[in-house]
Computed example of a mutant assay.
Amino acid sequence: MVTAGRRVLILSAGMGAGHDGVAAELARRLVADGAEAEIIDVLQLLPLRLGPMLRSGYQWVIRHAPWLYEATYQLFFVAKRAPSTSPLTLLAAAPLGRLAGRHRPDEVVSTFHLAAQVTGWLRRRGRIRARSTVLVTDFAVHRLWLHPGNDRYLCPNPAMTGHITAMTGRPALCTAPVVRPRFRPRVAECARTRARIGADPGDLLVLVSAGSWGVGAVTETARILASSGRYRPVVLCGHNARLRNRLGGGGTVLALGWRDDVPELMSAAHALVDNAAGLTCVEAFAAGLPVVSYRPIPGHGRDGALAMARAGFSVHAPDAAALLDALDRLRDERQRDLQIARASALFTSMPAVAALMSAPADLPPARTGRAGSCHR
């Protein structure tokens, strides 16, 4: 690997905690290997405070009008005839070009789809000289991740590499998901963890993830689990205090706010019920905790959940009966071990840092041209 002294600029976005979590861990690994790494929130490059407005608007829509996000996703993220370049790409391009000129990185890494569009646009026009790599954080890739101006793509799902190359003409490599080392299979002090959150020794705990924003149909999920009499839901409400207060009324549901002990909670749980197919899912894979997707948020959340299930990494439950059935099946050790093994295999792929630190000569240069679309 070519590591020591290399400068890497990582582009993320504060849309929830997932993209930033991947960026932070990637930076930590790069620095440990002797590189210099800096993280930039691409939303902060947008003028007129459009970045915070975009974040707030997306959060409101996901919470209160998910149908509107689904319509937007279908129109702009996956439609074949969608515009090739968004106004946001053009607005962020000039600030990022100036930033790259000042920092003079050897590599620019995008962990968010808007960043991938901007770097591809700039790279194709020769306004970024550094190699541009897109680290896809989703299990299902939509068109806004893809731009032929980027040099290469790294992704966690081996089923995506062929599609990415077909859409962009650029190399795509399957790499292990980027997860903090705290998330690993272990035998923890479950009794202490249970006592800390108020669970009884005999409870079969099921974590319910609502992301850092506490969104989705998690109230319904918790009710289904609690009313079964077989599982005690532990809802990770993130920063949503209203959701925590609504669920934490002293009943059978354990509602928790933002936590730093999620690895310990995972080690004490029977399964994770997830609705976003994001970083929490991947952390569960690393921790050896089976994942069941139920009522995923629209758009990329649903598509990611279905892609994970098709690959055998998780189970997608289309209704309440299927949710309970999936959790019941995981009580069979053979079924449980098989699902854990499939998900754990993701981490046998090449580490993302090893791919990033490969010699520049190992990669053909990006094609030149003016087109900015991933469409054929």
Rank of each mutant, 00 (worst) to 15 (best):
R143N: 11
H239D: 11
A188K: 04
A286V: 09
A255F: 03
G216N: 05
R194A: 05
S293E: 10
D337H: 10
F112L: 13
A287I: 06
L204Q: 14
V208E: 01
A24Q: 11
R7H: 09
L144W: 04
R170H: 08
P52A: 10
G372A: 13
I10R: 03
V206G: 04
Y58S: 03
T137A: 07
V42D: 00
V292S: 03
T119P: 04
S373L: 12
A284E: 03
E38F: 05
N157Q: 12
S358L: 14
P263D: 07
P365D: 12
L135C: 07
A130W: 02
A366T: 12
G51L: 05
Q74G: 15
M1R: 06
V178P: 01
L323F: 06
A286M: 09
R55N: 08
A361H: 11
G278F: 00
A13G: 06
V292H: 03
A222P: 01
V109P: 00
S227E: 15
P177W: 04
L279H: 09
L323W: 03
V253C: 11
L207P: 02
S293A: 12
P290Y: 11
H147I: 06
L54V: 15
D33P: 00
P52K: 09
L9C: 09
R124F: 07
W121S: 03
D325F: 09
Q335W: 10
M160V: 12
G162Y: 05
A326N: 05
R49T: 14
E220T: 13
V315A: 13
R131T: 14
L363V: 14
V109G: 03
A311R: 08
N245I: 06
D33H: 12
I340W: 00
S373M: 09
V2P: 08
A222D: 05
A309H: 07
S56R: 15
G238C: 08
V61A: 14
H316N: 10
V292Q: 03
I10V: 13
V235D: 00
G5K: 05
A217T: 01
L99Y: 14
L272Q: 02
T137D: 04
G198K: 10
M15G: 00
V273C: 06
A100F: 01
R49K: 14
R131P: 04
C155P: 01
L205Y: 06
N157E: 08
P95N: 10
A287D: 04
L146I: 08
A13P: 01
P95H: 09
P47A: 14
P364Y: 09
V262G: 01
A287K: 03
A287W: 02
D261T: 08
A326T: 04
E220F: 06
V136H: 01
T119R: 03
L26I: 11
R295N: 07
M357Q: 13
R302M: 14
H270E: 14
L54W: 13
L75Q: 13
Q339N: 06
E25R: 10
C174A: 15
A217L: 07
L330A: 05
R367Q: 15
L247G: 00
L91W: 06
R129H: 15
R244Y: 05
A79K: 11
H163C: 07
D303W: 04
R63P: 00
L247Q: 02
E189Y: 05
R63T: 00
